[in-house]
Write a protein that binds this DNA or RNA. Sequence first.
DNA 1: GCCCTCCGGTAATGTGCGTTACCATTGACA
DNA 2: TGTCAATGGTAACGCACATTACCGGAGGGC
Lengths: 212, 212
Amino acid sequence: MVAAKSGRTKRRREILLQAAAEVFFEQGYAATSIDAIIERAGGSKRNIYNEFGNKEGLFAAIVAENADKVLSTLAIEEIEGHDLEETLTAFGRRLMELYKSPTLIGIYRIAITETNRFPDLVKSFHEQGPGRATSRLAEVLEVARQRGEIRTADCLRVAGHFVGMIRDNLLQVILGIRPSPSDEESRVAVASAVEIFLNGVRPRQDKQTDRP
Amino acid sequence: MVAAKSGRTKRRREILLQAAAEVFFEQGYAATSIDAIIERAGGSKRNIYNEFGNKEGLFAAIVAENADKVLSTLAIEEIEGHDLEETLTAFGRRLMELYKSPTLIGIYRIAITETNRFPDLVKSFHEQGPGRATSRLAEVLEVARQRGEIRTADCLRVAGHFVGMIRDNLLQVILGIRPSPSDEESRVAVASAVEIFLNGVRPRQDKQTDRP
DNA sequence: GCCCTCCGGTAATGTGCGTTACCATTGACA
DNA sequence: TGTCAATGGTAACGCACATTACCGGAGGGC
């Protein structure tokens, strides 16, 4: 029965996490009751208390599971060989895609409110997920800077600017004012941000110093 | 007796709103108890129920009061005569200033979570406050575009980009990861965003997005 | 087949909280 | 100063909910 963890129990855990995430993201931490989660997941409360200890444990498990997903979606590795414009576009598209997922929206929503209750949790979520993606982008920009493709004093800062431009679309979605942008809208928004950003950081033309 | 609303009662109302805002912003709507508010404001619960009816009424009053403040801080009127760079810088500074205020951070924080509970309230907050500021910026950009100072297909979209760049600094503050930026940091961040933005949308002599 | 351990379900238990019933106090007006 | 209305305080009510006690049953080890 020790090995029982593999089959049923693991699957059960997934179901609980999924259901709990939905309710937490929809209602917020404080307003979510264990009963509501069970109502969605089936089974009984004992189930949750056996697996996660208590409400906080369940919540922590959810947040931890999702930071990884964010990070893996935003890894910039295979893109690095390409043109900067292509890289930024690809990165921007994926960022946009991510921001359209109800899960990430939910995580952000709840992280923002529960900062006081779970400071460490939120901090590590951001650092391991979104924050790391930004600093990875900054590294890419740093390489481009050394090649003279872009001109900037602070790669991390301008990476933040880029992410901010993409993320602007998110605020209204998070606030429930607008539905998630369509693929076409995303494409246009990313293209627009990339264009402005690249023009913005491109070396000035006064001397026409660098390449082609 | 009817006129009593003027003196004491009004002042009392202010104190209640202030204390309630602090607790709501700190703990979130669901986790805030009326007792906690009273503990901070003094007096008794009856006080709140007489003035605002119930918890929801109190919350609604807070949100409504603050949308105005946001909007008035971000009015772009007196700046219009100036250079576009000056206008953007001034607008960016004020935006940054606003995002440093605990009140606005609190409002955002709570608006983001309570979207499901108070959709209309949140919607009208955004439309009357931050949203309107962005569209006002878009109008300014439209004028600049007609003068040929900038080149863009969609002023509202790029206004969003600009606001997004500024707001990027806010996310980490809202998440409680970083303290509010100092005046100096704000200055630098705004200058950086303005520079990139202006270069980004400035008309170009030749097409250079495609390589030879 | 029998026992024993663990898992899951149900029904408490205790607490916190929004809301209200009820009473004391106050302050205006005659 | 006496009366009345409204305001502020206290204590109670009822409910929702996190957590746990208790119990039945399933399934592996002998």
